[in-house]
């Protein structure tokens, strides 16, 4: 098992390298001069050259890349052009918020999705299956920002039960574990959970239907197991794949929530990314994308390892 993990780690190195190259080049590929947003429009050529030197843009690209990686490895992602604060600290706060939102949304989505999927797979072809499939198709196809707005209208505007935006009272972005803050989390998490719910439901439905059609299920019945006993076998057979899908969904949610975070003004990475793009804040953009991409790489690694540990059939060498 340890050798497997070591091997798998080695395999991720080239991926991580590629990701870092892309992130680094982003600044240079992006149209326009990275300095235009810091400099006054009428800056003199001399000032421009000076700034270029300060930011290190006058050196050859490989050198710039090497220096950048070195700094990154030390946790220094540069300084946000818009706010002047270190990108790393902006990011770590946003990451915490996004992580919380994504984990909760994935959990809700996984629990509901598994339930729908199981029911649909067990009673395949019945009206229960059709109902469960209908719900999960809606989950996948409804625009999430729209769903978010509908929920806000119902639960914030009409019923006044939950706050509409932000992560805490008065728009504060610092999280505290109390009811006031948790109330802010509910609507965005529920909105976001619809994405993994639909995908998990579809996966689990197909898995369950496939497992139930296998001969070993007849074998389990033949030894006298009741429905609950057979259910245990279905769950253990479906678990590795279902959990892997859940893990990957968590990865998507960690990076792909710009719309939902914007609708709810949730101070997470998606929101930060949106700001970085609109304000042409390149260091912030570069740092955010790099960290999110690395997150995804790490998550893939974890999912693979967990799946291998759960499934005795996968060769462990």
């Amino acid at each position: 098992m340890l050798t497997y993990i070591a091997k798998r780690l080695l395999h991720t190195l080239p991926v991580a390298f590629g990701v870092s190259i892309v992130c680094f080049l982003l600044v240079h590929i992006a149209p326009g001069d990275p300095l235009t947003s810091v400099l006054p429009p009428d800056a003199s050529a001399q000032l421009q050259a000076e700034m270029r030197k300060i930011y290190g843009f006058d050196r050859p690209l490989p050198v710039q890349y090497g220096l950048w990686v070195l700094k990154t490895l030390q946790g220094d992602l540069g300084v946000s052009i818009a706010t002047g604060r270190p990108v790393a600290s902006e990011l770590s706060r946003a990451l915490g918020n996004t992580l919380m939102l994504a984990v909760l949304a994935t959990l809700i989505g996984f629990i509901l999705g598994s339930m729908f999927g199981f029911v649909a797979g067990y009673f395949r072809g019945s009206w229960l299956d059709k109902l469960a499939s209908f719900v999960s198709i809606i989950g996948v196809s409804v625009p999430h920002y729209w769903l978010g707005m509908v929920l806000v209208i119902i639960f914030s505007v009409q019923l006044n039960w939950l706050p509409a935006t932000g992560a805490g009272p008065g728009g504060s972005a610092d999280w505290v574990w109390d009811w006031v803050h948790i109330k802010h989390l509910i609507l965005p998490a529920v909105t976001m959970s619809v994405i993994p719910m639909g995908i998990v439901a579809r996966t689990v439905r197909a898995l369950v239907a496939d497992i139930l059609s296998q001969e070993f299920i007849v074998g389990q019945r033949a030894k006298g197991l009741l429905d609950l006993g057979v259910f245990r076998h279905v769950v253990k057979n479906a678990a590795p794949t279902a959990l892997a899908v859940m893990g990957l969904q968590l990865g998507y949610l960690l990076g792909g929530s710009i719309l939902i975070e914007t609708v709810f003004s949730w101070p997470g990475t998606g929101f930060l990314l949106g700001q970085a793009i609109f304000q042409r804040d390149l260091p912030l953009l570069q740092g955010t994308i790099l960290v999110l991409a690395m997150f995804f790489v790490a998550l893939n690694l974890i999912v693979d390892v967990v799946q291998t540990m759960l499934d005795p059939r996968v060769q462990r060498s």
Partner: peptide
Amino acid sequence: RGGTASMIFQDPMLALDPV
């Protein structure tokens, strides 16, 4: 099933739960 009467299948690989 399995109490009074039980069954052996042609291919035990298919009849046993792999996990």
